Simulated assay, not measured.
Amino acid sequence: VRTVMSIIFLILLVPVVLHSDEDIVKWMPASVLTILSVLFISLPIIVISLLQTRYPERAIMWFTRKLSFTTQRNCFIWYNEFKNAVVVMGKHPKMVFRAFIESGVSLLFIYATVPAYFTGLNIDFDLQQVMGRMVLLNLILYFSPTPGGSGVAEAGFLVLFSNILPNGVEGIMAVLWRFTAEYLPFMLGAVVTIRAFGSDVLNMASLKSKTTEGKKNE
């Protein structure tokens, strides 16, 4: 549910970013910019409407018809999890709105590590521009085909911030950002998980998954 909220929050910010960052959209006609803004704002409504129909399942079946059974099943599992998340959100609108705001603020604080590093290195920058590009980059990472957006995140950071940062600093800043926003929380989460559930937690999760799958096959 929180992932869905984060994606929707970032999508709703895209029109603001496109209209405020002239360097990104200077080659884009005003009419195209307007269409994209309306599309991004309407996208959550379109997705929720489609979830009430059978069209997404038919589309998944068509796109995965030539793939392996395991891949096809995983695609349907992901879709059902996404659909269930939306259903849960629809049943508790007030709580969802509060969680939506909290998720958005949490994301912005995480992205704020980048301008914090800029400030520490005495680099002149526009805060709104930097945060806007972080919004675009992290929205792309949600749909990245690589685990955790590895490679895509670093390459995207270099593309978006190469004209802001001095030469030779882009790569260092990309590594610092990834370490602070991704790898450090991952390591802390691993420590907390092991301390809370024991060092055998991975084997327990694997055994539970195999048991559940065996019952489904039966």
Rank of each mutant, 00 (worst) to 15 (best):
residue 69 F to P: 02
residue 65 R to M: 05
residue 27 W to V: 07
residue 53 T to N: 15
residue 81 E to T: 15
residue 8 I to W: 05
residue 71 T to G: 14
residue 56 P to M: 12
residue 65 R to D: 09
residue 104 G to C: 14
residue 110 I to A: 10
residue 50 L to Q: 08
residue 59 A to E: 09
residue 119 T to S: 14
residue 92 H to K: 12
residue 69 F to K: 15
residue 111 Y to S: 05
residue 95 M to Y: 00
residue 75 C to V: 06
residue 42 S to L: 15
residue 67 L to H: 07
residue 12 L to T: 03
residue 92 H to D: 09
residue 72 Q to I: 05
residue 45 I to D: 00
residue 110 I to N: 13
residue 63 F to N: 09
residue 13 L to F: 04
residue 7 I to M: 07
residue 26 K to V: 05
residue 53 T to P: 08
residue 64 T to P: 04
residue 27 W to G: 08
residue 56 P to L: 14
residue 89 M to R: 06
residue 81 E to R: 15
residue 96 V to F: 14
residue 101 I to Y: 14
residue 41 I to Y: 08
residue 54 R to H: 11
residue 20 S to V: 10
residue 20 S to F: 03
residue 88 V to R: 10
residue 125 F to G: 02
residue 29 P to N: 12
residue 19 H to F: 13
residue 68 S to Y: 10
residue 36 L to F: 13
residue 8 I to F: 05
residue 86 V to K: 00
residue 120 G to E: 03
residue 17 V to N: 00
residue 91 K to G: 00
residue 13 L to A: 12
residue 48 I to H: 09
residue 72 Q to C: 07
residue 80 N to V: 07
residue 66 K to P: 01
residue 64 T to Y: 13
residue 12 L to Y: 08
residue 122 N to I: 04
residue 34 T to S: 12
residue 4 V to A: 10
residue 126 D to V: 08
residue 19 H to N: 10
residue 35 I to D: 07
residue 20 S to D: 06
residue 55 Y to E: 11
residue 4 V to Y: 03
residue 53 T to F: 04
residue 44 P to G: 10
residue 92 H to P: 01
residue 104 G to S: 13
residue 56 P to W: 09
residue 108 L to A: 12
residue 26 K to P: 09
residue 7 I to A: 08
residue 82 F to T: 01
residue 22 E to N: 08
residue 119 T to C: 12
